[in-house]
Design a protein around this nucleic acid. Structure first.
Lengths: 118, 118
DNA sequence: CAGCATCCGATCTGATACTG
DNA sequence: CAGTATCAGATCGGATGCTG
């Protein structure tokens, strides 16, 4: 993602942080706890390794995500939220809640129930 | 913006609604009250008429924004938030608050004070 | 004032192949 | 398992000119 030199609007900053098809779901998943790259890829249906790595990198650039590499083979790495990242969850949660409301009003209750969202 | 046939994830739905460079600021501005197209363009620094109309149209497709055309010349139209749109403001507000926090931590207090954001 | 059509460069996404 | 490189197609953003 193209990065700006500086931000003159808080809304623009936050929007940029969660910009990209997979950013919100990545933050959401990491909110559950630290995980490996492959675990994350398994948890997020449809994402490819390249996009996952790219978006994780951008989230690290914004200080939302941190990476913990371990020594030895097989390679092991754990991704987790930083303090900033955890605070960003308030936005993600608000998005999730509104989304559930909208889907309810759109007659998707059955679907939401099946997934335990309501 | 390319629209999906259906959504299987609430987070994805909300993310799509606010997706696009100008969606959050448009919702934010409309949160202050109904305005004309030209007023909106004046309030949002840097936006062109095409993007404004395009993003307003997409927000209407999602049921966030409504348009009220008036008869006579010169032409007059008023854009405003729907009930759904007003509820979406909870997300925009959360984004704004986090953005302010992040900018504060980044030493932008002076800037924020000048704009009356803190 | 409000809105549409077109064109073009910048950016985003994803598939595939390859490395340590 | 974790990560990089490349390439092509889809999408986005913005400038410009035109219409009612």
């Amino acid at each position: 993602m193209k990065m700006r030199d500086s931000y003159t609007c808080p809304l623009e900053l936050t929007h940029d942080i969660i910009r990209g098809k997979w950013k919100p779901i990545i933050l959401w998943q990491l909110g559950k706890g630290a995980v490996s790259l492959s675990a994350l890829q398994n948890d997020i249906a449809g994402i490819g390794q390249k996009m996952l790595l790219q978006h994780l990198g951008e989230l690290q650039d914004f200080g939302m995500v941190q990476k913990e590499p371990y020594e030895g083979y097989p390679l092991k790495v754990e991704y987790s939220l930083t303090d900033k990242g955890r605070r960003m969850l308030s936005v993600i949660t608000a998005m999730q809640e509104i989304g559930i409301e909208l889907m309810k009003e759109d007659g998707k209750e059955e679907f939401l129930k099946n997934r335990g969202l309501i």
